[in-house]
Amino acid sequence: MNIFRFAGDMTHLISVLVLLLKIYATKSCSGISLKTQELYALVFLARYLDLFTDFISVYNTVMKIVFIMSSLSIVWCMRMHPMVRRSYDKELDTFRHYFLIAGCLLGALLVHEKFTFQEIFWAFSLYLEAVAILPQLVLLQRSGNVDNLTGQYVFFLGAYRALYILNWIYRYFTEKHFGRWISCISGLVQTALYGDFFYYYFISWKNNAKLQLPA
């Protein structure tokens, strides 16, 4: 465990907590893409298949359970909670995310470490996580003004993977056998997708203005 990775995990945890706070405190999920939340639930379920088979550390197991439970509860809230579901921007959240799932599944069948069930689902989860933010970014551009908590949610979500890239660089130089190009490339693509969001987020922070994404 290195500081980059720990900071990355904490930033990821903060992003989830910010989202839970927004939904719980405002009883609203306006500006949040249900499709992105569903993709993230899928990412965690596909990646943590080894939750009960490989024990790595208490930290690892606890964090996996937290991510799975939180992503499923957010999806449940947005679909079933009577107050929250009313504020879902159904007509704006129209990204066809099933194509993302199909594409990533195909990609995992073609490009993986080993042709085993667990490895293919692991590669699938990495590819899917790289693109999972797309419905959310599209929704933000469509809904124009972004409320603070939603903006912070997306910011921390992007920052976590950027920190993971520093972690992979660090591990590449400190661990002889470390070389995981599937994670690294997916992580680079994922962080790049946040590029323009980070730019407008920084501008709004510098001007102390409301975050406005160009339509």
């Binding site: 995990d9 790595i56 056998h177 470390f178 070389g179 995981r180």
Partner: peptide
């Protein structure tokens, strides 16, 4: 081997 290294990541 490098197989288990990244699997220790979240």
């Amino acid at each position: 081997n490098n197989n288990n290294t990244v699997k220790d990541e979240l």
